[in-house]
Design a protein around this nucleic acid. Structure first.
Length: 586
RNA sequence: GCGCCCGUAGCUCAACUGGAUAGAGUAUCGGUCUUCGAAACCGAAUGUUACAGGUUCGAAUCCUGUCGGGCGUACCA
């Protein structure tokens, strides 16, 4: 099924192009005011101006030639040259009926010939535990990957890459610390477990800062690591494996699809780094400055107005994250054959990625037909407007944050629905708690910072996960109470008939799902999806309050059951793209 | 200093990237449960879109300037 907006766009722009003799977009948009109908074409005014015509007259000519009679009431011309379309209830009813029969894709066509796409996200530093700073990249990246997987309808074309920090001085430091405190672990890693990776790291860091001898040991281990010395490598593998286990728990609890197969850490590019330098040198792009190897590109200036370097090798010979990122670009375009690479990192790294992209282009590692995108996002703040910290000022572990969310959700479930059994309550608490955290994050415009607020995200009123989950649970409750066989209903061949205002509003919204998915996929902005789902849940609540389902009779009852069913499916589907669970009762 | 992002209702945010009278939620006030889950619904009130110019049929959106905030700006990632 073609989205309604695209259908109208095609029809109107073809007539408009014919009339003007030039390709002319119709610029169809959903109307922002019901009195102007459901959709409006805004393109006539621009075209009239180009052709030095009267816009209203051009609009007259357009609707004289335009045939949309099967789907719309006769189009109306308004204002300076808008064309307004009101969809016919019969046509809407048929479209909704048709969407219901497509249980897999809800009537949404996949993108033709999608590009091989790498999504680089989460990418925590494995030397420490995941903290609140990793929340946004992890869940936003996961949503982007899920949305594209669905839109492409070709999961193999989405390659998730977890570019973890698993290399460098911090690991030398941890290895040196293990050798000091648990020498037996070097020979037998099972002899020792890191109970708390974060405090283990903090202890090592303290020693590193305070004890010059230890610092030397740490540097020694770092060099040994980079030289692939067996004993050090063994310890390194142990630390990384331990840390990965911590991460995996967080990913699982977050319902984020990442595992070891998606991991391609900094260490994996180690062998490729010298080639980056060599090839930049061969391309004549490498310049030594203050002992460091740099790439200078005119468009980037530093604070003195001089050209800003992209440093790819330090004066002591060590490589930097720019080097690794360049190697990663080469790996992704060369080995993975990526045609589109998406980086989900916070906005502060924008300059870095701009420079890396420019450098990769200039070096010929990413041709112009390969899309390189940085998806920047703002930070999570405490209610003081500063980066979110614990009361004592420490970093908030992601694990603790999620546990608290589940605990708080559990309290609410106990209060609202005490008679459920414990297992059900636990399931609800997990879905609601984690869903609330994710939804609160995803519902913000990416670029803005937001304040982390437990009460707001767990509130059952407003644009929150619990509100959406509640709307879903109410539909399920209808089907439970009415003892409805959903499969039989869907395959019965009965049709939807939208007549009441609430039914029409809901029906139109349901049919806009494909349009929204396209927008989210194109612009990589998850909050467009949360906004839509909230509108949908509100429209359903209104329908629910005004249009009795089980008490209705005959075709009306069937029709309303079908509408309720498609609403639940859409909410479930949308939330699943957000990585948020639905529950049948709450 | 320069660069990037931002400034919208008391508060938190939208506004499909130039469209019509700038919309939601929240808080506030009022109404709706013997009717499918009231964790809900319906209604009321809320604005010099930071400010000043400009571009045009039309600007929160684009351009210029000013003020205010966040971030970045050579060997951390």
């Amino acid at each position: 099924m073609i989205p309604i907006i695209d259908l109208l766009e095609q029809r109107v722009s073809s007539v408009l192009s014919e009339l003007t003799g030039n390709p002319a977009p119709a610029v169809v948009r959903p109307s922002n005011n019901p009195k102007f109908g459901d959709y409006q074409a805004n393109g006539v005014m621009g075209q009239a101006k180009k052709a030095k015509q009267n816009p209203r007259q051009l609009a007259e000519q357009v609707i004289a030639k335009l045939d949309v009679s099967e789907m719309c009431e006769p189009p109306q011309i308004a204002g300076p040259g808008f064309i307004n379309f009101r969809l016919r209830p019969e046509w809407l009813s048929r479209q909704v009926s048709q969407a219901i029969t497509d249980s897999q894709r809800l009537g949404i066509d996949p993108l033709a010939d999608p590009p091989v796409t790498v999504v680089d996200f989460s990418s925590p530093n494995l030397a420490k535990e995941m903290h609140v700073g990793h929340l946004r990249s992890t869940i936003i990246g996961d949503v982007i990957a899920r949305v594209l997987e669905f839109w492409y309808d070709a999961p193999e074309k989405i390659i998730r890459q977890n570019h973890v920090g698993d290399w460098g001085t911090q690991f030398g430091m941890l290895i040196a610390y293990i050798k000091r405190t648990h020498p037996e672990a070097i020979d037998d890693p099972t002899a020792f477990q890191i109970a708390d990776l974060e405090s283990f790291y903090q202890q090592a860091k303290k020693l590193f800062d305070d004890d010059a001898t230890f610092k030397q040991e740490a540097y020694h281990e770092t060099v040994a690591l980079h030289n692939n010395e067996q004993a050090t490598l063994k310890a390194w593998k142990y630390v990384v494996a331990e840390s990965r286990t911590h991460c995996q728990k967080v990913y699982d609890q977050l319902n984020v699809r990442l595992n070891k197969d998606n991991e391609r850490g900094e260490s994996s590019y180690n062998d490729r780094l010298p080639d980056v330098i060599k090839d930049l040198h061969n391309a004549g792009m490498l310049v030594e400055s203050d002992g460091a190897q740099c790439v200078f590109m005119d468009q980037y200036k530093n604070k003195d107005g001089d050209v800003l370097p992209l440093i790819v090798q330090k004066s002591d010979g060590a490589f930097l994250y720019a080097t690794t990122d360049l190697a990663a670009v080469r790996y992704r375009t060369g080995d993975l054959k990526a045609q589109r690479i998406i980086y989900v990192t916070d906005a502060r790294q924008k300059l870095h990625f701009d420079m890396v992209f420019s450098c990769a282009r200039k070096a010929g590692w990413a041709s112009e037909d390969i899309t390189l995108e940085h998806v920047p996002f703002g930070s999570v703040q405490g209610d003081d407007g500063k980066p979110f910290k614990t009361r004592s000022g420490g970093t908030v572990k992601l694990k603790d944050l999620l546990d608290e969310a589940v605990l708080r959700a559990g309290d609410i479930v106990n209060e609202k629905n005490a008679n459920l059994d414990d297992a059900t309550k636990a399931k609800i608490a997990a879905a609601v708690g984690v869903g609330a955290v994710k939804y609160a994050d995803l519902s913000n415009n990416l670029v803005s910072d937001y304040v982390f607020d437990w009460n707001k995200m767990l509130a059952m009123e407003g644009n929150t996960a619990p509100y959406m989950q509640y709307a879903y649970a109410r539909v399920q409750s209808i089907f439970r109470k009415g003892d409805i066989d959903v499969d039989a209903l869907v395959h019965s061949g009965h049709l939807v008939n939208l007549t009441e205002p609430e039914e029409l509003t809901l029906g139109k919204l349901l049919l806009r799902y494909s349009e929204v998915i396209e927008n989210v996929a194109r612009d990589l902005r998850p909050h467009l999806l949360t906004t839509y789902l909230f509108d949908l849940a509100q429209a359903f609540s209104s329908f629910y309050a005004n249009c009795p389902v089980l008490k209705a009779e005959g075709p009306t009852r069937t029709s309303r059951l079908l509408i309720a069913h498609l609403t639940a499916k859409t909410i479930h589907h949308g939330l699943s793209l957000l990585g948020i669970a639905t529950i049948d009762q709450m």
